[in-house]
């Protein structure tokens, strides 16, 4: 009951944010906020695959692309028809209903690809898995390039602008909450055991096959929804946005944050989204910003290989004012 109340509370809060934030905050900052949130979803979901389950995936951009393109096809081709049949609803509701449908479609299609990619993970380990996931991502991209109905090499344009602050905030919060809750559960410990020692995990009754595949499926699901948000925000999807460099970018976020730390993934995703923007203001050295970015990455890895936060996660519940007092150990 308390949980339901919290959900409704957040729902209303996010609706209010959606209504009033654009009036008080500069659009440029809102733009950065939106991009940060999408990267947070990507980083947190990849962290479940790489950090928690220890399956080295370099194909996250592929999941994002599949989710983005599927959802955009849904809203672009099916959306108008659905809205037409829902004409008894207020237009704004019908529109958001279509978007919810697209989000789920994008997430599920990416999850299906995750299932396909997860299967090789049963036979392949470490670097071999990394290169196969990278390869799958590239295959997806080249296939998209060859389908004219979704824009091919020109890119998919005129996607309806359904992404708004409400969806951005809700999905980011949902991703973080769901992944964090999953990680802190019995199933989450099963994911961790696969990362730590597969043979011991099997011997302790953990079905490692299942957990490896399911990590890919869940991670891909959220990445697909991020792709959907991305496409309906920019109103344009282009295959060049989903090269392996995008996958590298997300991997870098979770490594910089500290592999396995959700908190670290969130912070690093925000920092690394804002950093190249911030470097724009450096005036004469602004041409150097990508060089500075890569140098910073190398130096960070040499001086602090465990990432900014290691696998440390702050205990937010400790600061929650209404929690029940706990016995001191």
């Amino acid at each position: 009951m308390k949980r339901l109340a919290a959900f409704i509370g957040f729902f209303l809060l996010f609706l209010l944010a959606n209504r009033f934030l654009p009036e008080i905050i500069d659009p440029y900052y809102l733009h950065l906020f939106t991009l940060s949130c999408i990267n947070v979803i990507l980083a947190v979901s990849l962290n479940l695959i790489n950090g928690t389950t220890g399956q080295f995936s370099l194909g996250h951009a592929g999941f994002m692309a599949v989710g983005g393109y599927t959802s955009a096809s849904l809203t672009f081709y099916l959306g108008p028809k659905i809205i037409a049949t829902l004409d008894f609803l207020p237009a704004i509701l019908a529109k958001n209903f279509v978007f919810l449908f697209a989000l789920l479609g994008g997430g599920l299609s990416a999850a299906f690809l995750g299932l396909l990619v997860g299967i090789p993970s049963l036979r392949l380990r470490g670097d071999y898995l990394a290169i196969v996931t990278l390869g799958m991502g590239e295959i997806v991209r080249v296939l998209i390039l060859n389908v004219e109905a979704i824009g091919g090499a020109r890119g998919f344009s005129d996607i309806p602008a359904y992404t708004n602050l409400f969806w951005i905030i809700s999905l980011t919060a949902l991703t973080i909450a769901a992944v964090a809750s999953l990680t802190a559960s019995s199933h989450g410990r099963a994911f961790l055991s696969v990362r730590e020692d597969e043979i011991a995990a099997e011997a302790m009754g953990v079905n490692t096959t299942y957990y490896k595949v399911i990590a890919f499926v869940i991670g891909a699901f959220f990445a697909g929804m991020a792709g959907c948000l991305f496409g309906h925000y920019l109103q344009l999807l282009h295959p060049n946005s989903f090269t392996f460099l995008k996958s590298f970018e997300i991997i870098i976020m979770i490594i910089v944050g500290g592999l396995g730390s959700i908190f670290g993934a969130v912070v690093a995703a925000v920092i690394l989204t804002l950093l190249p923007e911030a470097l724009r203001y450096l005036g004469p050295v602004k041409d150097w910003r990508m060089v500075i970015y890569s140098l910073a990455l190398i130096i960070l890895m040499i001086t602090r290989p465990q990432g900014l936060f290691g696998n440390w996660t702050p205990d937010f519940r400790r600061w929650w004012p209404f929690r029940k007092p706990q016995p001191v150990a």
């Binding site: 590298f248 060089v291 890569s294 990455l297 190398i298 040499i302 290989p305």
Partner: peptide
């Protein structure tokens, strides 16, 4: 070399970093 005894993933990310550095440095 400074990463020789560290987890392999760290070295891998550094390699990506070096790659980005050469590409962006090259563009410059």
């Amino acid at each position: 070399k400074p990463l020789r005894e560290r987890p392999r993933l760290t070295a891998l990310i550094t390699a990506i970093g070096v790659s980005l550095l050469l590409e962006n440095g090259g563009q410059l």
